[in-house]
Design a protein around this nucleic acid. Structure first.
Lengths: 210, 210
DNA sequence: CGAAACGTTGACCGTTTTCAATTACAGTGG
DNA sequence: CCACTGTAATTGAAAACGGTCAACGTTTCG
């Protein structure tokens, strides 16, 4: 949230408006002229594109803390619909104001670029993890990515149900994978933390047992 | 490729250097001071982070046409290794030059922001598709996302093997899904193109047969 | 205190992966 | 113009894997 505020802060604070929507409310429609960008404080917003024949594709589901419609800043009209999936609270910034600010204040633009660059890096990393088919492997990759220190230790600040969703498997499957990894001695579980055991030590055991 | 060039063009063209690497060559190492950013013209580059215990995680695999290490522009040192997976041709831009240009030329910064914003939008969309579990559904979503016109038609410029990889399933599974979708009349295949049949017409049939 | 959410494990079942085999082409050299 | 070769497109069958359902103990929180 801190990083998100950072570049929005650069816009004239006065123009930053908070606004509430109820579930199913429409924030904007495909084709409408772009008037503002958004930062979701709470709730979920669905971005959907409608095709010529009436069918649709969900392009993204924005969650609390995210900004969205950034690309619209560079387009004349929105290229998808934004509909509140739940009640939500968003902050809106006028496109015109933002562009005005950025044309003079290069620092503001840099802040935006930075925000986006990190976003890209994170999304790519997430994507890489999701490309791993095997559950144990994917989970290990996810844990490695979030672990720190030597040996790598993972601090669990969220519950496994959440993590399961992020990793892209069901809660149950994750638990099974966890106990498998523990049996293979690739990880060691303690209340609130997970220690990732080094390849060398673990892989020998794993190969024998399986 | 056009859009990628667009913001690199804004950097002093003289400083834009082409450079070749052979497979396994190292472009930069984690911890090194950031000196440049990259645009991959051809080949594949792996971005890998090493952990304290020597194990590693792949953060991303850059492919031809992509830029990478954009986030490093805002960091003092690279946070991962970049290793050529194949022989490749990259364009490099000095970080110092780029920052200098951007501090005065707000247009250049906006161009970068635009490039990144589109990247974010595309990645999110890709991600959304990958979150669909069912192969037929995911494939339909992918096709809808890439189709144009009414009825939505998909022009096949790549072979299915490639597409299968992008969609996140094996080649064989995709073929099976294709024939299933055709049987259900959700799509109609002809040499080089696929027509997406409207929900209404197709879904009735599908429900009966299954 | 009780309901709801979280953590955990087992069994069963449907979908995908794998492995294997076959067909369809496009380009190549004779 | 044809046999020849390699890659893409298909389809089949068996095995592996994760989803779903079910059951139960444990926390959490109003």
């Amino acid at each position: 949230m801190a990083s998100i505020q950072s570049w929005l802060d650069l816009a004239d604070t006065a123009t930053l408006q908070g606004r509430r929507y109820k579930a199913h409310d429409v924030l904007f429609r495909q084709g409408e002229a772009v008037s503002q960008m958004f930062m979701l404080e709470a709730g979920r917003v669905q971005l959907v594109r409608y095709l010529g024949d009436g069918s649709s594709v969900t392009l993204h589901v924005a969650r609390s803390g995210e900004t969205f419609a950034e690309a619209s800043l560079f387009a004349a009209s929105y290229h998808c619909d934004a509909v509140a999936e739940t009640d939500c609270l968003v902050h809106t910034v006028s496109k015109a104001e933002l562009l005005a600010t950025m044309s003079t204040n290069s620092e503001a633009t840099l802040a935006l670029a930075k925000h986006l660059a990190f976003q890209v890096r994170d999304l790519r990393a997430k994507f890489e993890v999701h490309n791993i088919r095997s559950l144990p492997d994917r989970l290990m990759a996810w844990m490695r990515m979030h672990a720190q220190g030597n040996p790598p230790v993972l601090m669990l600040d969220r519950n496994w149900t959440d993590i399961a969703a992020e990793v892209g498997f069901t809660r149950e499957a994750i638990y099974r994978a966890l106990s498998l990894l523990e049996k293979r001695e690739q990880i060691r579980r303690t209340k609130g933390t997970i220690i990732l055991v080094g390849e060398e030590k673990a892989s020998k055991l794993a190969r024998m047992q399986l």
